[in-house]
Protein backbone atom coordinates (compact mmCIF):
# COMPACT_ATOMS: atom_id res chain seq x y z
CA UNK A 1 0.00 0.00 0.00
CA UNK A 2 1.28 3.41 -0.87
CA UNK A 3 1.24 6.03 1.81
CA UNK A 4 1.38 9.77 1.80
CA UNK A 5 4.84 9.71 3.27
CA UNK A 6 6.14 8.82 -0.16
CA UNK A 7 5.43 12.37 -1.18
CA UNK A 8 7.64 13.81 1.49
CA UNK A 9 10.64 13.48 -0.73
CA UNK A 10 9.27 16.05 -3.12
CA UNK A 11 6.66 16.71 -5.71
CA UNK A 12 8.25 16.05 -8.99
CA UNK A 13 10.53 13.07 -8.68
CA UNK A 14 8.98 9.89 -7.51
CA UNK A 15 5.42 8.98 -6.50
CA UNK A 16 3.54 7.42 -9.44
CA UNK A 17 5.92 4.68 -10.39
CA UNK A 18 3.83 3.14 -13.09
CA UNK A 19 0.21 2.67 -12.14
CA UNK A 20 -0.79 0.21 -14.86
CA UNK A 21 2.20 -1.95 -14.05
CA UNK A 22 1.42 -1.71 -10.36
CA UNK A 23 -2.07 -2.79 -11.26
CA UNK A 24 -0.81 -5.85 -13.03
CA UNK A 25 1.45 -6.73 -10.15
CA UNK A 26 -1.30 -6.61 -7.60
CA UNK A 27 -4.07 -8.00 -9.77
CA UNK A 28 -6.17 -10.95 -8.73
CA UNK A 29 -5.07 -12.71 -11.85
CA UNK A 30 -1.53 -11.86 -10.88
CA UNK A 31 0.36 -15.11 -10.34
CA UNK A 32 0.08 -16.69 -13.77
CA UNK A 33 -2.75 -14.50 -14.97
CA UNK A 34 -6.32 -15.20 -15.89
CA UNK A 35 -5.99 -18.69 -17.45
CA UNK A 36 -4.42 -20.07 -14.30
CA UNK A 37 -7.11 -18.50 -12.13
CA UNK A 38 -9.81 -20.10 -14.27
CA UNK A 39 -8.04 -23.45 -14.28
CA UNK A 40 -7.73 -23.43 -10.49
CA UNK A 41 -11.40 -22.74 -10.16
CA UNK A 42 -12.34 -25.46 -12.63
CA UNK A 43 -10.23 -27.99 -10.75
CA UNK A 44 -12.34 -27.14 -7.73
CA UNK A 45 -15.16 -28.79 -9.65
CA UNK A 46 -13.80 -32.25 -8.91
CA UNK A 47 -13.99 -32.22 -5.09
CA UNK A 48 -17.27 -30.28 -5.19
CA UNK A 49 -18.79 -32.79 -7.59
CA UNK A 50 -17.59 -35.71 -5.47
CA UNK A 51 -19.11 -34.11 -2.35
CA UNK A 52 -22.39 -33.28 -4.06
CA UNK A 53 -22.50 -36.74 -5.64
CA UNK A 54 -21.95 -38.44 -2.27
CA UNK A 55 -24.60 -36.33 -0.60
CA UNK A 56 -27.11 -37.02 -3.35
CA UNK A 57 -26.24 -40.70 -3.35
CA UNK A 58 -26.90 -40.96 0.39
CA UNK A 59 -30.15 -38.98 0.15
CA UNK A 60 -31.37 -41.17 -2.67
CA UNK A 61 -30.57 -44.29 -0.64
CA UNK A 62 -32.58 -42.93 2.28
CA UNK A 63 -35.76 -42.68 0.17
CA UNK A 64 -37.83 -45.79 0.90
CA UNK A 65 -38.39 -48.19 -1.93
CA UNK A 66 -36.02 -48.62 -4.85
CA UNK A 67 -35.85 -48.93 -8.61
CA UNK A 68 -36.97 -52.56 -8.47
CA UNK A 69 -40.11 -51.70 -6.53
CA UNK A 70 -40.82 -48.85 -8.89
CA UNK A 71 -40.46 -51.14 -11.88
CA UNK A 72 -42.26 -54.21 -10.55
CA UNK A 73 -44.94 -52.62 -8.43
CA UNK A 74 -45.95 -53.16 -4.82
CA UNK A 75 -46.88 -56.80 -5.37
CA UNK A 76 -43.37 -57.82 -6.43
CA UNK A 77 -41.89 -60.86 -4.75
CA UNK A 78 -38.57 -60.54 -2.94
CA UNK A 79 -37.08 -62.95 -5.47
CA UNK A 80 -38.08 -60.82 -8.45
CA UNK A 81 -36.72 -57.75 -6.69
CA UNK A 82 -33.44 -59.47 -6.02
CA UNK A 83 -33.14 -60.32 -9.70
CA UNK A 84 -33.67 -56.74 -10.77
CA UNK A 85 -31.32 -55.45 -8.07
CA UNK A 86 -28.64 -57.80 -9.32
CA UNK A 87 -29.23 -56.61 -12.87
CA UNK A 88 -28.73 -52.99 -11.80
CA UNK A 89 -25.77 -53.79 -9.57
CA UNK A 90 -27.68 -52.80 -6.44
CA UNK A 91 -26.77 -56.01 -4.67
CA UNK A 92 -23.23 -54.77 -4.18
CA UNK A 93 -22.16 -52.90 -1.03
CA UNK A 94 -23.20 -49.24 -1.00
CA UNK A 95 -19.63 -47.97 -0.90
CA UNK A 96 -18.71 -50.02 -3.93
CA UNK A 97 -21.79 -48.79 -5.78
CA UNK A 98 -20.76 -45.19 -5.12
CA UNK A 99 -17.09 -45.58 -5.98
CA UNK A 100 -17.79 -47.41 -9.21
CA UNK A 101 -20.33 -44.74 -10.25
CA UNK A 102 -17.88 -42.00 -9.26
CA UNK A 103 -15.01 -43.61 -11.13
CA UNK A 104 -17.00 -43.72 -14.35
CA UNK A 105 -18.54 -40.29 -13.82
CA UNK A 106 -15.09 -38.72 -13.53
CA UNK A 107 -14.20 -40.10 -16.92
CA UNK A 108 -17.38 -38.63 -18.35
CA UNK A 109 -19.51 -41.79 -18.34
CA UNK A 110 -22.68 -41.16 -16.37
CA UNK A 111 -24.02 -44.66 -16.95
CA UNK A 112 -27.43 -45.75 -18.24
CA UNK A 113 -30.82 -44.83 -16.93
CA UNK A 114 -32.27 -47.61 -14.78
CA UNK A 115 -35.66 -47.00 -16.25
CA UNK A 116 -35.06 -46.69 -19.99
CA UNK A 117 -31.57 -48.09 -20.38
CA UNK A 118 -30.54 -45.04 -22.41
CA UNK A 119 -27.25 -43.32 -21.62
CA UNK A 120 -27.83 -40.62 -18.99
CA UNK A 121 -25.71 -38.17 -20.98
CA UNK A 122 -28.10 -38.49 -23.94
CA UNK A 123 -31.10 -37.78 -21.73
CA UNK A 124 -29.34 -34.77 -20.26
CA UNK A 125 -28.35 -33.52 -23.70
CA UNK A 126 -32.04 -33.48 -24.61
CA UNK A 127 -33.28 -31.93 -21.36
CA UNK A 128 -30.57 -29.38 -20.59
CA UNK A 129 -31.25 -26.97 -23.49
CA UNK A 130 -34.90 -26.69 -22.42
CA UNK A 131 -33.99 -25.70 -18.87
CA UNK A 132 -31.15 -23.42 -19.93
CA UNK A 133 -33.49 -21.66 -22.34
CA UNK A 134 -35.98 -21.00 -19.56
CA UNK A 135 -33.35 -19.72 -17.15
CA UNK A 136 -31.56 -17.62 -19.77
CA UNK A 137 -34.75 -15.97 -21.00
CA UNK A 138 -35.89 -15.43 -17.42
CA UNK A 139 -32.59 -13.75 -16.51
CA UNK A 140 -32.54 -11.55 -19.61
CA UNK A 141 -36.16 -10.58 -18.99
CA UNK A 142 -35.45 -9.88 -15.34
CA UNK A 143 -32.50 -7.62 -16.17
CA UNK A 144 -34.53 -5.72 -18.74
CA UNK A 145 -37.42 -5.22 -16.31
CA UNK A 146 -35.71 -4.92 -12.95
CA UNK A 147 -32.57 -2.85 -13.58
CA UNK A 148 -34.35 0.24 -14.96
CA UNK A 149 -37.08 -0.05 -12.33
CA UNK A 150 -34.54 -0.50 -9.52
CA UNK A 151 -32.57 2.51 -10.68
CA UNK A 152 -35.79 4.50 -11.01
CA UNK A 153 -36.85 3.51 -7.48
CA UNK A 154 -33.45 4.60 -6.15
CA UNK A 155 -33.55 7.96 -7.95
CA UNK A 156 -37.01 8.52 -6.54
CA UNK A 157 -36.37 7.07 -3.11
CA UNK A 158 -38.42 9.01 -0.60
CA UNK A 159 -40.91 10.08 -3.24
CA UNK A 160 -44.22 8.39 -3.87
CA UNK A 161 -43.40 6.85 -7.24
CA UNK A 162 -40.22 5.29 -5.83
CA UNK A 163 -42.06 3.88 -2.85
CA UNK A 164 -44.66 2.37 -5.20
CA UNK A 165 -42.08 0.42 -7.13
CA UNK A 166 -40.61 -0.93 -3.90
CA UNK A 167 -44.00 -1.82 -2.44
CA UNK A 168 -45.14 -3.69 -5.54
CA UNK A 169 -41.86 -5.60 -5.68
CA UNK A 170 -42.27 -6.40 -1.99
CA UNK A 171 -45.65 -7.96 -2.71
CA UNK A 172 -44.08 -9.83 -5.63
CA UNK A 173 -41.54 -11.33 -3.23
CA UNK A 174 -44.31 -12.83 -1.15
CA UNK A 175 -46.08 -14.57 -4.06
CA UNK A 176 -44.73 -18.06 -4.86
CA UNK A 177 -43.76 -18.63 -8.51
CA UNK A 178 -46.04 -21.64 -8.99
CA UNK A 179 -49.04 -19.66 -7.77
CA UNK A 180 -48.11 -16.82 -10.12
CA UNK A 181 -47.85 -19.39 -12.91
CA UNK A 182 -51.33 -20.71 -12.18
CA UNK A 183 -52.78 -17.18 -12.13
CA UNK A 184 -51.06 -16.34 -15.42
CA UNK A 185 -52.35 -19.55 -16.99
CA UNK A 186 -55.91 -18.82 -16.01
CA UNK A 187 -55.66 -15.24 -17.27
CA UNK A 188 -53.65 -15.52 -20.50
CA UNK A 189 -54.35 -19.07 -21.53
CA UNK A 190 -57.73 -20.09 -20.16
CA UNK A 191 -59.31 -16.63 -19.96
CA UNK A 192 -57.95 -14.61 -22.87
CA UNK A 193 -56.70 -17.51 -24.98
CA UNK A 194 -53.63 -15.48 -25.94
CA UNK A 195 -50.88 -17.88 -25.00
CA UNK A 196 -50.57 -21.68 -25.19
CA UNK A 197 -50.29 -23.55 -21.92
CA UNK A 198 -48.92 -26.81 -23.32
CA UNK A 199 -46.55 -27.91 -26.01
CA UNK A 200 -42.88 -27.33 -26.65
CA UNK A 201 -41.62 -27.25 -30.22
CA UNK A 202 -37.82 -27.48 -30.25
CA UNK A 203 -36.10 -24.16 -30.93
CA UNK A 204 -34.01 -25.76 -33.69
CA UNK A 205 -37.14 -26.86 -35.53
CA UNK A 206 -39.54 -23.98 -34.97
CA UNK A 207 -37.84 -20.96 -33.35
CA UNK A 208 -40.88 -18.69 -33.29
CA UNK A 209 -43.23 -21.41 -32.10
CA UNK A 210 -40.71 -22.28 -29.44
CA UNK A 211 -40.53 -18.71 -28.14
CA UNK A 212 -44.31 -18.41 -28.30
CA UNK A 213 -44.66 -21.50 -26.13
CA UNK A 214 -42.15 -20.48 -23.46
CA UNK A 215 -43.62 -17.04 -22.80
CA UNK A 216 -46.03 -18.34 -20.22
CA UNK A 217 -43.50 -20.49 -18.30
CA UNK A 218 -40.87 -17.72 -18.34
CA UNK A 219 -43.22 -14.92 -17.30
CA UNK A 220 -43.61 -16.00 -13.66
CA UNK A 221 -39.85 -16.43 -13.43
CA UNK A 222 -39.31 -12.89 -14.71
CA UNK A 223 -41.89 -11.45 -12.34
CA UNK A 224 -40.62 -13.39 -9.35
CA UNK A 225 -37.00 -12.62 -10.17
CA UNK A 226 -37.69 -8.93 -10.75
CA UNK A 227 -39.25 -8.64 -7.31
CA UNK A 228 -35.89 -9.65 -5.83
CA UNK A 229 -33.63 -7.79 -8.24
CA UNK A 230 -35.53 -4.48 -8.12
CA UNK A 231 -35.03 -4.24 -4.36
CA UNK A 232 -31.36 -5.18 -4.50
CA UNK A 233 -30.58 -2.87 -7.41
CA UNK A 234 -32.47 -0.08 -5.74
CA UNK A 235 -30.65 -0.54 -2.42
CA UNK A 236 -27.25 -0.66 -4.15
CA UNK A 237 -28.12 2.43 -6.21
CA UNK A 238 -29.31 4.39 -3.17
CA UNK A 239 -25.90 3.75 -1.58
CA UNK A 240 -24.04 4.62 -4.77
CA UNK A 241 -26.02 7.83 -5.29
CA UNK A 242 -25.29 8.89 -1.70
CA UNK A 243 -21.56 8.19 -2.03
CA UNK A 244 -18.82 10.79 -1.92
CA UNK A 245 -17.85 10.19 -5.52
CA UNK A 246 -21.39 10.85 -6.70
CA UNK A 247 -21.31 14.11 -4.76
CA UNK A 248 -18.09 14.97 -6.56
CA UNK A 249 -19.65 14.16 -9.92
CA UNK A 250 -22.51 16.54 -9.04
CA UNK A 251 -20.09 19.21 -7.82
CA UNK A 252 -18.32 19.01 -11.19
CA UNK A 253 -21.57 19.61 -13.03
CA UNK A 254 -21.77 16.28 -14.84
CA UNK A 255 -25.13 15.66 -16.51
CA UNK A 256 -27.54 13.64 -14.38
CA UNK A 257 -27.65 10.81 -16.92
CA UNK A 258 -23.88 10.42 -16.76
CA UNK A 259 -23.94 10.51 -12.96
CA UNK A 260 -26.65 7.86 -12.78
CA UNK A 261 -25.28 5.35 -15.27
CA UNK A 262 -21.59 5.97 -15.74
CA UNK A 263 -20.85 6.72 -12.09
CA UNK A 264 -23.48 5.45 -9.66
CA UNK A 265 -24.62 2.40 -11.61
CA UNK A 266 -21.04 1.49 -12.32
CA UNK A 267 -20.36 1.55 -8.58
CA UNK A 268 -23.43 -0.62 -7.96
CA UNK A 269 -22.58 -3.04 -10.78
CA UNK A 270 -20.68 -5.69 -8.73
CA UNK A 271 -23.65 -5.98 -6.37
CA UNK A 272 -26.07 -6.22 -9.28
CA UNK A 273 -23.99 -8.95 -10.94
CA UNK A 274 -23.90 -11.01 -7.78
CA UNK A 275 -27.63 -10.70 -7.29
CA UNK A 276 -28.30 -11.77 -10.86
CA UNK A 277 -25.96 -14.75 -10.52
CA UNK A 278 -27.62 -15.90 -7.32
CA UNK A 279 -30.96 -15.45 -9.00
CA UNK A 280 -29.89 -17.58 -11.98
CA UNK A 281 -29.12 -20.44 -9.61
CA UNK A 282 -32.38 -19.88 -7.74
CA UNK A 283 -34.28 -19.97 -11.02
CA UNK A 284 -32.75 -23.37 -11.74
CA UNK A 285 -34.69 -24.56 -8.71
CA UNK A 286 -37.84 -22.82 -9.86
CA UNK A 287 -37.72 -24.72 -13.16
CA UNK A 288 -38.29 -27.94 -11.19
CA UNK A 289 -41.84 -26.83 -10.45
CA UNK A 290 -42.57 -24.81 -13.59
CA UNK A 291 -41.46 -27.54 -16.00
CA UNK A 292 -43.85 -29.84 -14.19
CA UNK A 293 -46.74 -27.35 -14.44
CA UNK A 294 -46.13 -26.63 -18.13
CA UNK A 295 -45.08 -30.20 -18.98
CA UNK A 296 -41.76 -29.13 -20.47
CA UNK A 297 -39.15 -31.80 -21.23
CA UNK A 298 -36.37 -30.14 -19.23
CA UNK A 299 -33.99 -31.10 -16.46
CA UNK A 300 -36.55 -30.32 -13.78
CA UNK A 301 -39.20 -32.68 -15.16
CA UNK A 302 -36.55 -35.31 -15.75
CA UNK A 303 -35.29 -35.03 -12.17
CA UNK A 304 -38.75 -35.18 -10.63
CA UNK A 305 -39.60 -38.24 -12.74
CA UNK A 306 -36.28 -39.87 -11.96
CA UNK A 307 -36.86 -39.43 -8.24
CA UNK A 308 -40.34 -40.90 -8.66
CA UNK A 309 -38.96 -44.14 -10.17
CA UNK A 310 -35.74 -44.12 -8.10
CA UNK A 311 -33.66 -43.90 -11.27
CA UNK A 312 -30.43 -43.48 -9.29
CA UNK A 313 -28.06 -42.94 -12.19
CA UNK A 314 -30.25 -40.32 -13.82
CA UNK A 315 -30.74 -38.47 -10.51
CA UNK A 316 -27.00 -38.41 -9.88
CA UNK A 317 -26.25 -37.34 -13.44
CA UNK A 318 -28.67 -34.41 -13.28
CA UNK A 319 -27.41 -33.26 -9.90
CA UNK A 320 -23.87 -33.35 -11.23
CA UNK A 321 -24.87 -31.07 -14.09
CA UNK A 322 -26.54 -28.68 -11.63
CA UNK A 323 -23.32 -28.53 -9.61
CA UNK A 324 -21.31 -27.83 -12.73
CA UNK A 325 -23.69 -25.02 -13.71
CA UNK A 326 -23.43 -23.47 -10.24
CA UNK A 327 -19.64 -23.53 -10.39
CA UNK A 328 -19.48 -22.07 -13.87
CA UNK A 329 -21.93 -19.27 -12.98
CA UNK A 330 -19.91 -18.37 -9.90
CA UNK A 331 -16.69 -18.45 -11.88
CA UNK A 332 -18.08 -16.22 -14.60
CA UNK A 333 -19.39 -13.75 -12.03
CA UNK A 334 -16.04 -13.66 -10.25
CA UNK A 335 -14.25 -12.96 -13.51
CA UNK A 336 -16.66 -10.23 -14.50
CA UNK A 337 -16.58 -8.67 -11.02
CA UNK A 338 -12.80 -8.59 -11.22
CA UNK A 339 -13.03 -6.82 -14.53
CA UNK A 340 -15.54 -4.18 -13.41
CA UNK A 341 -14.03 -3.25 -10.05
CA UNK A 342 -10.30 -2.76 -10.41
CA UNK A 343 -9.67 -2.30 -6.70
CA UNK A 344 -11.12 -5.69 -5.81
CA UNK A 345 -8.55 -7.44 -7.97
CA UNK A 346 -6.07 -6.91 -5.19
CA UNK A 347 -8.12 -9.07 -2.83
Amino acid sequence: MRTDTEEVTGLADEPVADPPAANRRRGRFAAGGMPRFVLRRLLLFVPTAVGAGLLTFLLVKIIPGGPAYARLGEEATPEAIAVVDKQLGLDRPVVEQFTSWLGRALTGDLGESFQTGQPVSNLIALALPVTLELVLLAIIGTIVVAVPLGVYAAKRAGRRSGRWVRTVSGVGLAVPDFFLALVLISVFSVGLGLLPRLGYPRFTEDPLGNLYHVVLPVLPMILGGSAIVIRQVSAAMVDALASDHTRTARAMGLPERVITWRYAFRAALPTVLNVVALLALGQLGVTLVLEKIFVLPGMGSALVNAIGVRDYTLILGIVLVYVLIALVVNLVVDIISGLVSPASRGA
Binding site: R2, T3, D4, E7, L11, A12, V16, A343
Partner: peptide, 17 residues
Protein backbone atom coordinates in the same frame (compact mmCIF):
# COMPACT_ATOMS: atom_id res chain seq x y z
CA UNK B 1 2.63 18.46 -8.97
CA UNK B 2 1.93 14.99 -10.30
CA UNK B 3 4.83 13.49 -12.21
CA UNK B 4 4.13 11.29 -15.23
CA UNK B 5 0.78 12.90 -16.04
CA UNK B 6 0.00 10.61 -18.94
CA UNK B 7 0.44 7.52 -16.84
CA UNK B 8 -1.45 9.00 -13.91
CA UNK B 9 -4.42 9.60 -16.20
CA UNK B 10 -4.89 5.85 -16.53
CA UNK B 11 -4.50 5.12 -12.81
CA UNK B 12 -7.29 4.11 -10.47
CA UNK B 13 -7.69 5.67 -7.03
CA UNK B 14 -6.51 2.54 -5.22
CA UNK B 15 -3.15 2.93 -6.94
CA UNK B 16 -2.67 6.49 -5.67
CA UNK B 17 -1.92 7.98 -2.28
Amino acid sequence: GLPNPRRTLTAYTHELS
